[in-house]
């Protein structure tokens, strides 16, 4: 099989678990979409009484009953109440009660690690969200893993046989999670010149490993342990105590207790790789939480992601006190 066909097939791998979760009506329409749209599919949008939409190739399209696309709203298929009800039952495997926590957080994970975001009416109790009812809007996000996404950054994170404490700064949708996932795989599996290390992933939002029934659906390395759906601070402590990882990888730190947990990991001699929302160093330093974190000089490497050469571009890599910037120009 040629690599081109292989790539094409892997680009379509998302279909099985997602089509399985769609009601018959919508499944038929999505199946009939042109192949170039299916390959680059990012989102399927399902909102009751509103047109069926997909997001692919960087823009949105309306989908008609016949499975053709158009940019006109009036030709699109209108989602019925029956569709949303069936979809909710299918994505929850007829067991909505087993997903209380997920519903409260507004998303659940399908087989294959794809996430379905949902909105409806929040039911409150003591000012906190207890559950959600009348769930009428769904966003099915196709998640793709990019094997090799961490190849470019890897040399900058190594010090001898060890890994630097690393913080990845990035605006949303710039490949932060993809990069963390591939870092986990590379560090865990090892590569020529680097022997693999035990990795612990604290995956609060089930995005890095995309666990389904406790099994990682993404390639995250053969000696990687995943704590799925676990709050970061508590998860880091659990990892330290129970799994003796050499490297802990976690997504989007942002709370004060996270820093305490990271400190604890540092004291235990564990390397930390994590990420935060920020457009760059300046932006990060303007935020109270991130600036105090950066000024503590915990992180030996601070990498900034952007899209000057496309999504996932490595814009800058700094050392701990920002005195050195390793990249002469952005790389991808």
């Amino acid at each position: 099989m040629s690599t081109a066909t292989q790539r094409k097939e892997s680009a379509l791998l998302w279909q099985l678990p997602i089509l399985e979760a769609l009601p018959d009506t919508i499944q038929k329409m999505i199946k009939r979409l042109p192949i170039y749209l299916l390959q680059d599919m990012e989102e399927i949008r399902i909102r009751e009484n509103r047109p069926l939409m997909v997001y692919s190739n960087g823009r949105e399209y309306f989908v008609s009953q016949e499975g053709t696309i158009s940019s006109r709203r009036d030709t699109a298929y209108q989602i019925t109440a029956d569709d949303t009800q069936k979809l909710l039952q299918l994505i929850s495997d007829y067991s909505l009660y087993a997903f209380d926590e997920e519903i409260r957080n507004g998303y659940l994970t399908l087989r294959g690690g794809h996430r379905v975001g949902m909105t409806g009416k929040a039911v409150l109790e003591d000012g906190k969200i207890r559950t959600m009812k009348y769930i009428k809007s769904f966003n099915i996000r196709i998640s793709r893993e990019v094997i090799g996404a961490a190849d470019k950054i890897m040399p900058y994170l190594l010090t001898g046989k060890d890994i630097c404490h690393t913080l990845i700064l990035s605006p949303p949708q710039m490949g932060k999670t993809t990069l963390l996932r591939d870092l986990a795989r590379k560090i865990s599996d090892g590569f020529p010149g680097f022997q693999g290390l035990k990795v612990g992933v604290v995956d609060e939002r089930s995005e890095i490993a995309g666990c389904w029934h406790g099994l990682p659906q993404k390639k995250i390395g053969f000696q990687t342990d995943v704590l799925d759906g676990c709050p970061k601070a508590a998860g880091i402590m659990m990892m330290i105590r129970s799994m003796s990882p050499r490297v802990i990888i976690t997504d989007e730190i942002g709370r004060v207790e996270d820093v305490a947990a990271i400190q604890e990991a540092l004291n235990a001699g564990i390397r930390i790789i994590t990420s935060a929302h920020a457009a760059g160093i300046k932006d990060a330093l303007a935020r109270p939480f991130l600036s105090s974190l950066l000024e503590s000089r915990i992180f030996e490497r601070v990498a900034v992601l952007g899209d000057t050469l496309g999504v996932g571009t490595l814009e800058k890599i700094y050392n701990a006190d920002f005195s050195t910037q390793f990249l002469s120009q952005p790389i991808r």
């Binding site: 909710l88 039952q89 929850s92 007829y94 067991s95 909505l96 009660y97 209380d100 559950t131």
Partner: peptide
Amino acid sequence: LGSSDREGQ
């Protein structure tokens, strides 16, 4: 059956 949260069920 199956269509509400745990408490409701």
